[in-house]
Amino acid sequence: MEYNPQSKQEPLDTESEDRFASEQPSEFQQPYQYQEMKQDFKHSGPGIASFVISMVTVLGYVIAFVVVGAMATSVFDQSGNLLASASEVIITIGISVLILSALNVIGVVVGIVGLALRNRRKVFGIIGTIINGVIVLLFMMLISTVFVNAGGL
C-alpha cells in the first residue's frame, strides 16, 4: 500500500476515486492474510523426550517385575522360609525401582519444560507429564504405605 496524503483543499478527481474503490476489497471480499494455525507448530522436543522416558520406564517396570518374579521362585524353600540368596532379589528390585523412579522424576521435569515452550505442540508433553507424574505419585504412595505399616511392627 502506498501512502499518498492529499491536502484538504485539493479535491480528489473522480478517476482516482474509482481507481481506489476498485483496489479496496468490498465488505464480502476479505484480503488474504496468512494465519498461523496450531497444526503448523512443531512438536516440542522436551515433550517428546518426556513421553519416551515414560514409555521406557513403564517397559522397565514390567521387565523388572517379571525378572524378579522369576528369580523369586527360587528364593523360598519348601517350608516357605526365605533363603540367604533372597537379599540379591530384594536388592535387584530395589535398585531397579529407584533408578526407574528417578527417570520418572526427570520425565516430569522435562515434560513441564516441554509444556512451557511457546509455539509448539504440547500433546507429547501433556501425555509424558501425566504418565510420569502418575508413576511418581504411585511410587510415593507405595513408600508412604510401607512406612506407615512398618511403624506397627
Rank of each mutant, 00 (worst) to 15 (best):
94 G>I: 04
141 M>Y: 09
78 Q>W: 00
39 Q>G: 02
145 T>Y: 07
9 Q>I: 06
99 I>Y: 14
128 G>V: 04
82 L>V: 01
107 G>L: 07
84 A>R: 08
84 A>I: 04
57 T>D: 09
119 N>F: 09
50 S>K: 08
143 I>F: 06
142 L>F: 09
119 N>I: 00
106 I>K: 07
37 M>P: 00
118 R>I: 00
108 V>A: 06
116 A>T: 11
69 G>V: 02
135 I>T: 01
8 K>I: 11
4 N>I: 15
58 V>I: 15
125 G>I: 01
117 L>C: 04
6 Q>T: 13
78 Q>P: 00
50 S>E: 07
133 G>N: 05
66 V>L: 15
53 I>V: 15
105 V>Q: 06
48 I>E: 09
86 A>S: 15
43 H>F: 03
44 S>A: 10
53 I>F: 14
33 Q>A: 09
23 E>G: 08
63 I>Y: 13
139 F>V: 08
83 L>M: 04
109 V>G: 03
97 V>D: 03
90 I>M: 13
3 Y>R: 09
103 L>G: 04
59 L>A: 15
134 V>F: 07
84 A>H: 11
109 V>D: 00
66 V>I: 15
126 I>C: 02
4 N>R: 14
70 A>T: 01
27 E>W: 13
51 F>N: 04
9 Q>Y: 09
80 G>K: 02
136 V>L: 07
74 S>E: 06
134 V>K: 01
24 Q>F: 15
144 S>T: 14
141 M>G: 07
138 L>W: 04
